[in-house]
Simulated scan of single mutants.
Amino acid sequence: MISINHAVKRYGKHEVVSNVSVVIKPGTLTTLIGANGAGKSTLLSLAGRLLDGEGEFLLEGKDIASFKGSELARQLAMLRQSNHLAVRLTVAELVGFGRFPYSRTRLNAQDKQIVEQALLSMDLVHLADKYLDELSGGERQRACIAMVIAQDTKYLLLDEPLNNLDMAHSVHIMKLLRSLVDDRGKTVILVLHDINFASCYSDSIIAMKDGRLIVHAPTERVITTESLQEIYGMHIPVSEYEGRRYCHYHF
């Protein structure tokens, strides 16, 4: 379980996260939604200890600040929104870094098998020996996701994992994340801009606006025309098909 109590993040006098408290249940997929500048990525980075802020951040009841780096890296993996790397690595080398908390730089047979599985899960086996600067933006994004998966932690925090991805790969990754929750008991928290992906794959949704928490509730309570009006300031009709709700915001 991840507990965030009275989270605040300021840049100068400007609060980008304002007194937000949420509890993420284990074994669930939770999505953060909201307009640009709502504070979603900042809240996720606070929870992942990538940023310092005010408030209490607990991982399974323990202050996240009290974890040693290597200990935390075995519990929690995070995909940043921007993954620009200055060093020249192959795809396989990058994904292998996901095993660093366990084997440092000396991968054993089990590590190599996990890396292979991660490459396979992201359809990257044929690109394993390619350098990252030879790839498209979508291929690099999939490589970064594979690295997070190879880290094999209980908690995965993903900031806009569908960036640069085409429709087929976006659906594949959402299905994979859903299976990590349902079949392997992982806890996944992600930031998404596509509210239809959030609607179809999430157990619960955290909606933010101007740094404030608007609602944290089961998906069906958030994906309503009334709630979306408050979150985005626009009228978004919602329909239902085969038990899933779809948001019609294209008109």
Rank of each mutant, 00 (worst) to 15 (best):
M1T: 14
I2R: 07
K9A: 09
G12A: 05
K13M: 10
K13P: 07
K13T: 14
H14L: 14
H14D: 12
E15W: 04
E15M: 11
S18E: 10
V20I: 03
V22G: 02
V23Y: 03
G27D: 07
G27Q: 08
G27M: 10
L29M: 14
L29I: 12
T31W: 09
G34R: 14
A35E: 15
G37Q: 14
G37N: 08
A38V: 10
T42V: 10
L43P: 09
L44C: 07
S45R: 13
L50A: 04
G53F: 02
E54M: 03
E56D: 14
F57Y: 15
F57N: 06
E60H: 09
G61A: 12
D63S: 10
D63P: 04
A65Q: 13
A65L: 11
S66N: 09
K68Y: 01
Q75P: 00
L76V: 06
L79E: 06
R80N: 13
N83F: 06
N83P: 06
V87R: 02
R88G: 01
V91M: 04
V95G: 02
R99F: 07
F100W: 14
F100N: 12
Y102V: 03
S103G: 03
A109R: 08
Q110F: 01
D111I: 11
D111L: 06
V115Q: 04
Q117N: 13
A118N: 08
D123M: 11
D123I: 04
D129G: 03
Y131T: 11
L132P: 06
L132S: 09
E134L: 02
L135W: 04
L135C: 10
S136F: 03
G138D: 06
R140W: 00
A143I: 12
I145D: 01
A146W: 08
D152Y: 07
T153K: 07
L157C: 00
L158I: 11
D159M: 06
N164E: 07
A168H: 15
A168R: 15
V171M: 09
I173F: 02
M174R: 01
L177F: 13
R178I: 00
R178L: 00
R178T: 00
L180G: 04
V181T: 08
D182T: 13
D182V: 09
D182P: 00
K186H: 04
I189K: 04
L192Q: 07
L192E: 12
H193K: 08
N196V: 15
N196I: 14
F197K: 00
S199C: 12
C200W: 04
C200A: 12
Y201I: 09
S204G: 05
A207L: 05
D210S: 09
G211V: 03
I214E: 08
V215P: 00
A217S: 12
P218Y: 04
R221L: 10
R221C: 01
V222E: 03
G233H: 05
G233C: 11
E240A: 05
E240Q: 11
Y241S: 12
R245Q: 11
C247Q: 13
H248E: 09
